[in-house]
Design a protein around this nucleic acid. Sequence first.
DNA 1: ACTTGACCGTTCACATGTGTACAATGACCG
DNA 2: CGGTCATTGTACACATGTGAACGGTCAAGT
Lengths: 161, 161
Amino acid sequence: MALRDELGLRAPFHAPAHEALLGLYHTASQIKKRIDVFLRAHGITDVQLNLLLLLHYQAGRDGGLTQVELSRMMLVNRANITSLIDRMERSGLVARVGRPGDRRCRVIELTPGGRRLIAKVERDYAREVARIMAPLPARDLASLIRMLDALRGGLRTRRRR
Amino acid sequence: MALRDELGLRAPFHAPAHEALLGLYHTASQIKKRIDVFLRAHGITDVQLNLLLLLHYQAGRDGGLTQVELSRMMLVNRANITSLIDRMERSGLVARVGRPGDRRCRVIELTPGGRRLIAKVERDYAREVARIMAPLPARDLASLIRMLDALRGGLRTRRRR
DNA sequence: ACTTGACCGTTCACATGTGTACAATGACCG
DNA sequence: CGGTCATTGTACACATGTGAACGGTCAAGT
């Protein structure tokens, strides 16, 4: 269904660019909601699962990632990571470990509980993601990825800083 | 640039579906940040501008929209609208007006200040949106809109609720 | 008229995001 | 060595989002 009908708008969009932009926002947020519902049974959010997966698949030599590394991989402000790790530490999913040689960083590592949760959730999560993306055939999926890359690329180049 | 490089990931994505999903999230959030920077000079956020535009272009016969109508057009929880309107009322952009005949609703209307702000910002905002979407030719834009519609459509149908 | 149920706005606790500022630490250069 | 600058985590105020619960109001059926 067209976005206009979904939102119940009385007047049409003025420009395809604006419709596409709002479509991006709403699609991302609706998908996020769906995944959050799916994950609620496991007591985590999509952001927390994303962080767990990063620790699992992207960990460095010392078995973890610093908060700054995590913030870069999640494209969020590093200030944000502090409270996120606080919550996940309270849930027993991750631990802050000092890094010998640099007392500025705290390396974040998965706890056994965190690993267990990943093992329990991962398969179903991948299936859910596949289901969500199922309306797009492989060809469209590749096309979508390419277009999103192009959009973010445009944000990086044009306009200084 | 591919998402993997932008995030600095050491390992590739396991599935195109997952890459597309994270691409959607990150593209939406990066665009939102860009627009927020653009709007900061005017003292509002992208969410607030969106609400102003809804009031301007989608208002009903009585010249405004109720909070529930706004929440539906913005695809957010109605609980969220209360504090949003509180802030915008404090800024003098909108007003809560009682609706004769139904004491449950408060109709939200633009104030003269709100109208002035729209007049001041609208043109530049449309230009900014066009710039952001510029990497995609018209053909791709239509394709993107179609794919996003299909994804949201898939969320609505499959699964009860 | 009265119950019953739907609807609307509000409030609460919470999660996530921003920008700013600060203290501690590390790195580097003269 | 010592000053300077960058990096890291944290704290704060704020904006936005959720779900749950509550009270007031309307509408509809008995």
